[in-house]
């Protein structure tokens, strides 16, 4: 191999940088967060269910929010008809957060556990600023 002195150190640096997300997490085990559904607004509900069932919301809430954003901003609709026929105003700020008023314990705890940084809160007002 030509130019060993140059190539090997560069390769080593590249490998270290590319694997940073993996090795930076060594020894940082964290317990899965408990989602806190205990807000006064939810306690006051007769039936404690979100706009769709829990399983669906857990795995699809991000896609649903994306879809809401397209339907409301781009297509000019404002009402979401859920699978059970109930109608909801499409608003992250005014509908979702009206029940889930505890953004830190509901949204943030899970997002930080999963290391995702949705930029929703740069614009949409969510509790503390």
């Amino acid at each position: 191999m030509y130019d060993k002195k140059i190539i090997i150190p560069i390769l080593a640096v590249i490998v270290v940088v590319l694997t940073y997300p993996i090795w930076s997490l060594f020894g940082k085990g964290a317990a899965a967060p408990e989602l806190d559904l205990n807000t006064p607004e939810i306690q006051a509900l007769a039936e404690k269910e979100c706009i769709e069932d829990t399983e669906f919301m857990r795995s699809n809430h991000m896609e649903l929010l994306n879809e809401w954003r397209i339907k409301s901003v781009r297509e000019g609709t404002n009402v979401y008809v859920a699978s059970d026929g109930q109608e909801y105003e499409m608003s992250l700020q005014n509908t979702c957060l009206s029940c889930h008023s505890n953004k830190e314990n509901f949204c943030d705890s899970c997002h930080s556990y999963a290391e995702v940084n949705p930029d929703c809160w740069d614009c949409h007002v969510g509790g503390e600023l």
């Binding site: 769709e52 896609e63 649903l64 879809e67 000019g76 609709t77 404002n78 979401y80 699978s83 109608e87």
Partner: peptide
């Protein structure tokens, strides 16, 4: 993601 309907007031 959904097959739901969207309406306008």
């Amino acid at each position: 993601v959904t097959k739901s309907k969207y309406l306008r007031t």
